[in-house]
Each structure stands twice: as structure tokens, then as C-alpha cells.
Design a protein around this nucleic acid. Sequence first.
RNA 1: GGCCCCAUCGUCUAUCGGCUAGGACACGAGCUUUUCAUGCUUGGUAGAGGAGUUCGACUCUCCUUGGGGCUGCCA
Length: 456
Amino acid sequence: MSEIRVRFAPSPTGKVHIGNIRAAIYNWLFARHTGGKFLLRVEDTDLERSTPEAIAVLFDCMKWLGLDWDEEVFYQTKNVKRHLEVVDQLLASGHAYKVEKTSRDGKTGVVTMFRMPKEGVIEFDDIVKGHMAKKAEDIQDFAIVRSDGSPIFHIANVVDDIDQRVTHIIRGDDHVENTFKHICIFRALGAEVPKYGHLSMIVNQQGKPYSKRDGAAFVGEYREQGYLPEALFNYLLLLGWNPGDDREVLTREEMVKLFELEKVHVTAAMFDPKKLAWMNGEYIKKIPANEFRDMMVRSATAEGSSSRNLGEYAVSLRSDLRSVSERIAWWDYLAAQIQVRTKFLKDIPGAIRCFVSDDYPFDEKAVEKRLKKPGVKELLLDLVERFSKVEDWTAPALEAVVKELSQGNGMGPWVHPIRVAVSGRGEGIGLFEMLQLLGKDTTLARLRHAAETLCA
RNA sequence: GGCCCCAUCGUCUAUCGGCUAGGACACGAGCUUUUCAUGCUUGGUAGAGGAGUUCGACUCUCCUUGGGGCUGCCA
């Protein structure tokens, strides 16, 4: 048994569709599981769209998802000479012939056709779909060279697979019909027919192929929206495969160890953004605390905070924190509060804005609901009074103050206005933790400011 | 139209003839007596329909229905 070799063969268009990248993931996992090679072939025959930029986007997406390939990238356009040599071979052996045809758009020219067998059954055992068979007579002869002399997908694809010594072709379901044709080309050339595995499509809520009309359809969009590559990878893998037990969140090692093409589903899978979002949250929770903290610090500077010395973990609102360790502790505390609440990385800047800058937006609805009510102004000013007497500025001490005010009833009437006054939002981390992080000066200043300018 | 493929909760799925049909997401309720989130407890919802094989069928066979794919000088 020779070495297993699989390939991912996208045509670079500048965007990588999630269905396509799932095929890449399955190929990659199959190769890594079996100890084979995962090859990358760029089918760049569409010169208009296959720009260097588009190819760079493709590489970028693959690297982002950790899909590393073996050997040199194979460019289809560099093999055109071989494609045409093989066509001559087929012409000579009678497996192909030239004929004048008129295309759909009315152009007439001479194309080279592949001659299909006229009888018999073409069959193969698909690793995911099982035994497949089709009568040769049900398949028409098909073009392999255009009238302008350029090779067509069918011949280019097969020749490249022969040249790259591909042993297993794992690709989308939409290629099953082509497979019957391709098998005939392999045979006509006396080449060994590779094994096939056809993957079902990812569909939308209507059961139609998932497209950009249904939401984010390209890898780049998920990246921009703050999805973690591990989460997208894991989710896409689960769409049509499972490890055989109840595990869903898997490490890359587990995936490689457990992945089996035979267990991939035949049925189309519906894309569920909600579950992907959940999965993303799971992966965000798994980020090591110090790593998450550093990500937060970075996004804080991007958000216009006045802290400019990243290395020292500056905390712009807390000049009282003198030592580096105090500041790191401050960030660690904030990070711990934020991490469990984060579903998308892109939400982080908004969530920490009020902690790193006095210039934070106020949510109009929250202001309306919590501050523009009679008595709130007096309530806030009273709190300023009481809080200013607090020496030990910690969450428990601050909570004790409000608890006393509420006299055993709910703390809601105090908590909500305070939250909106100091953070501008109706939601966020625990209120008293929030006040502790902001510090006494900032808290009192913001409460006063809100009472005077925002209340009714 | 022709050919090929498919069919378990709303969704992703487990089940390889014995099922009180399990899990996850989503949804509902409750608790953790400040929001949100996390966490925990808990609830409901599934085998398209019809024949057959069998002691027994979600699992095997056939038909019907429904869905998808392909049917280019696209890939």
C-alpha cells in the first residue's frame, strides 16, 4: 500500500466558502489521521479572478484555520502543457475526438470531446456514500478542450491528480456525476483510479445550498466577526461527523486521532449560526487567562484609551495604581469578569470601553429607563455622599453600602441607575466589581456627572 | 423530463434487530436572593407514509411521498 495522498483543489476567487473549507478540513484530517500527505492545488485557470491577491486570501484562510499543507503548492496553469499532451494521447488512442460545436452563446468552433463507453456500468465504492453505479449510456460524451485550445476542468483535474499521485479524492457532493466521467478518463489513460469520498453540502434553513444570501458564507467573514478559528473548525467538522460519543468540543489532537472518513454523513447538514456562536463561547472560555488579558489590553489601546505604555499594563483611569503588579492584577480582574461573558472577540472593546476611558457612549434606552426617572438624581447624589465615606474601596464594602440602603428588599432600584451612570450601559460585569475596578475617584465623578447632566 | 443520492426532536446527531429512542444547540421553568453571563437543576418536542421479512424493526427489502445533486466550450 503506497502512501496516502489527498489534495484540496480550490479555484481562488478571493473568498473561501465555508462548504469548501469544510472539504479542506476533512482532507486535512484524513491525511493527518492516516499519516498521509495533504496537498494544495490552486486551480487558477480563471485568469480574471485568480489574482495574486485572491491566492493570498486563500493561503491566509488556510493558515488561520491551521490547515498546513505538505509539499509545494501545485498551480494548475503551470500544467497546461501536460493536459494537452494527454489529450493528444487520448486522441491517438481513439478515446477522444474533435467535433465542430456551437456553444450556448452562439459561438461555433472545434472542441475536443471525450468518448464515453457506450455500454456497461461504471461503478465505484464511495467512502462516504457507499456503492455508486451508473449506466455508461446515461452519460454523454463531454468536452475536454475548448475551441480556443484551453483544457477544460475534467481533463485538467484528472491529469493533475495523476501527476500529484493523489490516492484519495475527498470533495463536494456536487462532483459525484463528474466522478463517473473522471473514472473513465483514468481508465482510458491506464492510470489507477483513486478512491473517492463525496461530502454532502452545507444547506440553509430552506434546505438549499448555503450561500452568501443566508449570512456569512465565507471564512473571512467569520474571522472579521471575531470567531476563533478553532471554533469554526470544530463546528464545521461536527457538521456531518461525530467522534462516536457525546464529545463535541474536541482538541485538534483528538480530532486527528478520531477522524474517520467512513463515519462522515451522507445527508446534507443545515448550518446553525446559534450553535457556532455557542461553540465560539466555549473556545473563548478555554483561552488561558493571561492570554485573554493581553488580547484585552491590546484591544483597549485600539479603542482610544490614553494608556500608551502597553509593556507596563497602564490603567488610564487609575493613576493610584503605582506598581506594575498592581496594574496587572487590575487587568487580570477585569479580564476574568469579561471572559466568561464574551461570545465574540469583537464585543470586547465595547465591553471594556468604560474601564479604559472617560469617553464612553451612553445607551439611550438605558438612560431613559434608569436615569430619567423622578428621584434618581437625589438617589445618585445620596450615593455619592455615602460612597465618599468608604475607605476600603472593594466590591464587598460597596455592596454593603447598597444593601443597607435597600433594607432587605431588592437592590435593583440602586443597582440599575448606578450601572448606567458609571458605564453607560444596562448590562456588563457585576456592578460592585465594576465600581471596584473604576476606583473611588472615577466612580464618584461619574455619579455626580450623571446626576447633574443626565437625570430628569 | 432523464440519471444519481438522501430521509430520527426546530437544528446537529447517537442507535450497527430488543428503545422507557440518548446527547448537544436553541427554547421554557427554577436556583446561585443586583444586571448580563457563567454554573447547576429541570421541562417539552423525533423515527415522512404504506406494504413485506422477523418472535420482535427507527434499524433489513420494496413502493409512495418529500428533499437535494447533476444534466455547459463553469469548476
